[in-house]
Each structure stands twice: as structure tokens, then as C-alpha cells.
Design a protein around this nucleic acid. Sequence first.
DNA 1: GTGGCAGACCGAGAATTTCTAGGCCTGGGC
DNA 2: GCCCAGGCCTAGAAATTCTCGGTCTGCCAC
Lengths: 212, 212
Amino acid sequence: MTYRLPSLNSLRAFEAAARHLSFRAAASEIGVTSGAISQQVRKLERSLGVDLFRRLPHGLLLTAEGAAYLPRITRVFDDLTAATEEIAPEMNGRKFSVGVCPRAAAVLPPGWPLARRNLEPHVRERVATADLHEVKAGAIDCLVRLGGGDGDLERFEIARVADASGREERLCLICKPGLAHCLQNAALIADLRGLLSPKTAGEIVDVRAEIG
Amino acid sequence: MTYRLPSLNSLRAFEAAARHLSFRAAASEIGVTSGAISQQVRKLERSLGVDLFRRLPHGLLLTAEGAAYLPRITRVFDDLTAATEEIAPEMNGRKFSVGVCPRAAAVLPPGWPLARRNLEPHVRERVATADLHEVKAGAIDCLVRLGGGDGDLERFEIARVADASGREERLCLICKPGLAHCLQNAALIADLRGLLSPKTAGEIVDVRAEIG
DNA sequence: GTGGCAGACCGAGAATTTCTAGGCCTGGGC
DNA sequence: GCCCAGGCCTAGAAATTCTCGGTCTGCCAC
């Protein structure tokens, strides 16, 4: 059996960078410097012989190859996490955590999103008492709430719904800028749309295309 | 997103050691010393908090947890390989190579085993001019041939078949000792059995059970 | 325009991880 | 009873990875 595989660390750096479309943000998520991410991604690109990102002076874009690679790598991580937690439950491999504010929870099925089979294995944790600051601080990856977000965060409008008192409100998914399109959030958005036949809804646009 | 995953290197050491049921053999496959394998596996066990092997004075056995973990890790490697080769074909991630001697090829479907969908993605290379020495040297992982093997290798008898000249011969899979039960060989054996409704065939026994 | 700033890149050196080497220990086979 | 195979251990060497400055480029506000 011969092996020639990229290292897990460089894949992890790639996955985080692709999700955030930023080396800096990926670095802060993983807890290293952005130089380390840059080096790991470069190493991965060199070992593959393929450019995964297009570097722009103010941020990144995925190339076509990078965009094709990302969801498959995400799945590899998800499978590895599932396998690992099966034999070592306390290991807690890789969590994408979703905050649900109480008012939004009232219009969603009980236990959403963990109770939804189709979101497995991407979504791994539910936080019930979440608010916007936790998204900013990185304590949770996204927040589902009634009402808009905040200028520094991305807001994705799912549907208009009637809250407990009968008032019409917008159900939104709030996340860091650029992340509405990451695999996990896209799965959540698709699920919410299926649940709440939307009167008006935003558009999922894949920004992860090669430019020029 | 929080991460707490074992390192790829330690998983690779585990996978090879489990396949060979020997640190020494795994070390020689990967090209390091057996001490390195021992350390990597121990690190993995420590980080999981679970024993994967039962160390015997003369070899290894998988524990129940190790036996449950192995096929899932194999799949993770296979998926990673497939994803990686898709965007970087020359990468050649991880190959399980099957030798087919010409006389055996004559009684098998053309292109076997690569042409068989159900063997994807475990089997990754076919070598047509193979002989027993290549198995011993580790140049290929197993060999399918007519007639038995050699005292130092494991022989798994699939079926009795008529060769080109009408003589009855035994179709056998030859591999290193203990490896007839590894995932890849088991898949090959099952496929061959399905193809050649066997008159007599051996038994696949899973030796990878925890003892006592 | 021009200054400030965000974000990526680079290189040197530090820190951490991984590997090797050599000796030890145990049990099976002759 | 001796020899050998195979795993274990530890110390030090080797390799990898990370950090820390410093640089460069283009955007934005003034």
C-alpha cells in the first residue's frame, strides 16, 4: 500500500480558510497566526500542484479546484469526527454550533436543528441561549433569530413568520461575513426553507467561483 | 468551529498496523522504524482515551473499539484519496494494488478488478505481470493466480476453475500473512466468490476480535 | 492626493513534534 | 536452556511547524 496524502493540518487550514475566505479569520478560529495558515495552505497547494485560492489584496477567492475540493474535505472531516466520536464520545471532534434564540425556537420544530436527520453530520451542537455577541466572538458559528442582525455580521433572511404574539417578523440566520455560503450554513438555510414555505426569502449565491 | 481530531499520521500508523496486525510490518510499509509506529499508535490511543490494540508478546490483536474504528478510518482515507485525485490526478494518494497473473486473468472478467464498481474505492491499481516475489517484497498488496502460493505467504482459496487448457486449477488470492482479512482483500474475495459460484471455497474468518 | 489600515507574503529563528538508535523484557520454538 | 521475534522505553537528533518582525498592495476616508 503506497500513501501520498496531504497532511491533516494543511487540510484543516484549507477548510477553515475556505469557509472564512480569509487566512486571518481562519487563523483566529484555529488559534495560530495567519502566517501559519498561509504556510500550510501553500504547502497543500504545492503538494497538490494546484492553486486552491486566488489571492486578492483584500481577501481570498476559491479557484474552481478549491471550490470542488472544499465540500469533499468537509465531508472527510465530518466522517472522521463521526467515526472518532463513536468509539470515544468525549472526544468531541469538530463542532459546528448553531445558536437558536428563544423566540425563533418557538416557531421551529422542537429540538431543531439537532433533531433533523438531513443536517447530520454537519451540525453538531445547539446553543439555546445565544445572542449576537457570541457569533462575533466565535463562540458559536451561526445564530437563528427573529429580526435582523448587526452591521458587522451577515444576515440571511429565511422567511417572514408570525411570532408568539402574532406579529410578523423576519426569521434570519446570522453569521460572520461570507459564511452564509459555507456548507454548514447552506444546509441549515435549505432546511429552514423547506420547513417554512417562505413568503419571501433571500437567494443563496455561491460566491466561491473563480473570477476572470 | 471547534476541532479536536487525531492527527493524520497517527491514523495512518493505526490503519497500517491494524491491517498487518504488526507494528513492525506497518513500519516497513510506511518506511519508518517500529518505534515510530508504536509511538504514533500510543499517542492516538491516549488522545482517544481508548485502547485500540491488545499487545501480545508475539503480535497484536485489535480490541473491539479498534475493530470498529478500522473500517471507518479506511473509508476516510479512501474518500480523501478520491477527493484529492479528482483535483490533482497525479497525486496518487493511496493505492492498494492487486496483481493478476495472466492465467488467472483468462478466467476473470476483462479488466478485473478495476472494472468492478463494487470494489471502488478500495482497490486502486492492477498489475498484470505480477508474481509471488512482488507480494513478498511489498511491491503489490496481493496476487490473484492459479495454483497455491508459498509457505511464507497466506493463501486464500477462492474456487476451482478450468484453465485455458481445460485443466482444473485452484484460483487463489495470495497475500502477506494475516492480510486475507483486511478490508481490501476481503472485498476482493467476496467479489471473486460472487463471480465464480465456487465449488469449494475457504472461509473468511475475522481474526480481529478482542480476546478474553 | 495622501495617510491609515487591512490582509497577504517572506525569512529567520524558536518551539514543538516526530523519528532513530540502542538496549530491555517477554514468551515461543528448537 | 538458548535464541529469536516483536513490542517497549528513553535520550537525543532531525524535521516540521509556528511566531515574530518587516514588506507590499490596494481600499477608504479625509
